[in-house]
Nucleic acid binder design. Structure first.
Lengths: 214, 214, 214, 214
DNA sequence: TATGAATGAGAATTCATTCAT
DNA sequence: CATGAATGAATTCTCATTCAT
């Protein structure tokens, strides 16, 4: 077959990106083959090279895109207030929502750093660091203002991020727990964790206290 | 050459296991080649097959060994008391210590589940589940006795495990933070997280409040 | 280099098939290596996998092709008559000619059944059985009509086929015996063997009675 | 384990030979591995080298042994008479019996000539030639005395040998046809084939004329 | 823009063989 | 006589990548 009438580069590139994220999340970057990627997209392996100069570059671009997406969206959605509790609440909400919505991207970004070439690794980690800094800064500020009580803001930030990001490992969109409920539970856990003087009378967590999964 | 003088099966197997864990942690299972593994051990690639029937079986055996190690050691070291706070404190201590001591095994066990054949995957996950259940059980018991306050013991267990396990990602044996201090900080974070009626006047965390990593 | 100018799938596949038959006939299927096959064809070993999914599938396809070739050609060339002697004569002629013309295919088909996977083995043997049945049927019919005298048509068919097929083992295109003469001698032997009321005064065999190969 | 008390070289060697013939017949010489052979015999692969200097030498020895066995036994069993018909009858009987009794040896000897090193090939073929010559000589003598009518004794010898040897391909010890009956049928086919002035009133073939396998 | 034929390097794995014990 | 640890070369097969069309 020659060229499909109306075939369209932008559409093809997008299809490749989507399929690549899915495939890498499923199999891992090293285990994914361009052959299979091409098969899923419905093109020949060679065609991928119109859009990405190499398998490795494809990974970096996907990861950078994801991290830029996170940073930009946070920029847009973060609350105007400077109340640490409100800011933390917003961050948890943002993080849990984006990390369940874009589960595969998050998973890939967490698993495949090893597969990056050193220079790419540095770029990606720098962006990730900026994201971590958002939380560190919120915690640090909260500690200073007496809103939170943790021995070390950076350690606490790592702990909280690990906790929050871990949600992607087990949460299923179609599982027992609704996403709203999920956010509520994690918000409470985080608040307790950082020693927020909690008003844990928030309704969402309250009326479920008797529920118990598994 | 047929056989290096004094060569010894048990020793060789051990050397392969050690090197394999290190190499998989470094590069990832798929990216690791048996050639390189053999080179590090100082044998020919084919010799690995005296000890493992395939690359895939090697991975399972390493993972199962690691999980069995964790379960057995917890069995031996867990405290006799049934006070939830004491049990949780012991678990955090055990987990953080074993997860910093056997960092690479932990890392591999968390990253390479994907690379397992389905049947092996099930075996490994079953063991991991038993480990998770230890913490779930402690939390559930604590909630019932009023020692902890979390909306859902299982969700909290996942959250706490993610938090604790994440320590392996950034903690360096030779870094700023001592292991003792590390355990102290995580203990406090976990206690707060599960809403333990805290006696957080513990000295270890106190006199460091002004310190700040990174 | 990506692609030799003017390279052409159909041509390459044919070259591989030809070379494969020759090489398997020479060395045996197990002893043949894809490296050597590729070298003879003038491509890289990996390129063979564009045309055959595995070494094993290559063998089946070659054997099935050969047997289909035999069956189809017999279908086209078999005589319209129902006189058993004429039919047998035509079969011997067809068999000896095709088995000297396609010596290597025949040889491979006889030697390499063992190397087939069980499922493939069944397919190939089923086709071979259809070929054997052609002769069995001719003999059976001839026995019923009183044209041949053998105790058991199926046993005789095996005996005659073995005899005829054996010709490929020793006959050389450039040897003492012409192909025409060869067919004549085998026709006579077969006719005698099945007890045909022979008119063995056929000239072809006559004027050579004093010749002696080897 | 050290050495089994009373373990015995001659016994081991014999076990290896037996197993080797069986395994080569099953899989083919190239496809057989010394590992599997050793496993069947119950020794370690290295131990085989006490008895055979290499895999290749093992094959030659097995083939030479087999051919020597055939020649010696014929020497002992051949009839004293010089009547061509009697001699041919005895040969057919001997050949069919030995080729069904030692099926696997025969099969191996026919299939694996290719796997021999050139020098070994020559030795084996020379012995086989001596065996073929026995039949050629009988036929030639019979033609001269007017007992047989074939255009060329050597061609007929090849044809008859192929026919007779083919029996090993399909005959099953536990099948429909008894061995006695088998010999009788082949004797008759051969006699007819060489144009022996037949007294085909021999009882063995007669009273079965109505039988029909398959 | 896309194909499909081909490459070449390297992967896991197998195997005959060796030899200290 | 036999073992078992090890070798080294080779095997099938895979894969990222190239490029004429």
């Amino acid at each position: 077959m020659a060229r499909t009438t109306g075939s369209d580069g932008a559409r093809t590139e997008d299809a490749i990106r989507q399929a690549a994220i899915a495939l890498i999340a499923e199999r891992g970057f090293e285990a994914m083959t361009l052959r299979e990627l091409a098969r899923r997209v419905g093109v020949q392996p060679g065609s991928i090279y119109r859009y990405f100069p190499s398998k490795g570059r494809m990974l970096v671009e996907l990861l950078l895109d994801h991290l830029r997406f996170l940073l930009e969206h946070w920029q847009r959605e973060r609350p105007g207030t400077d109340d640490p509790v409100e800011r933390l609440r917003a961050f948890v909400d943002f993080h849990v929502r984006s990390h369940t919505l874009r589960r595969r991207e998050v998973f890939v970004a967490n698993m495949e750093l090893r597969s990056l070439a050193p220079a790419d690794y540095r770029k990606v980690v720098a962006l990730r660091r900026r994201y971590e800094d958002i939380l560190t800064e919120i915690l640090r500020d909260g500690v200073e203002r007496g809103a939170f009580r943790v021995p070390d803001a950076r350690v606490a930030a790592f702990a909280v991020l690990a906790m929050l990001t871990g949600v992607g490992t087990w949460f299923r969109e179609d599982g027992r727990l609704g996403k709203h409920e999920l956010v509520a539970q994690y918000t409470r856990l985080v608040m307790q964790c950082v020693g927020a003087a909690h008003d844990d009378t928030a309704p969402a967590t309250r009326h479920r206290q008797h529920r118990r999964p598994d």
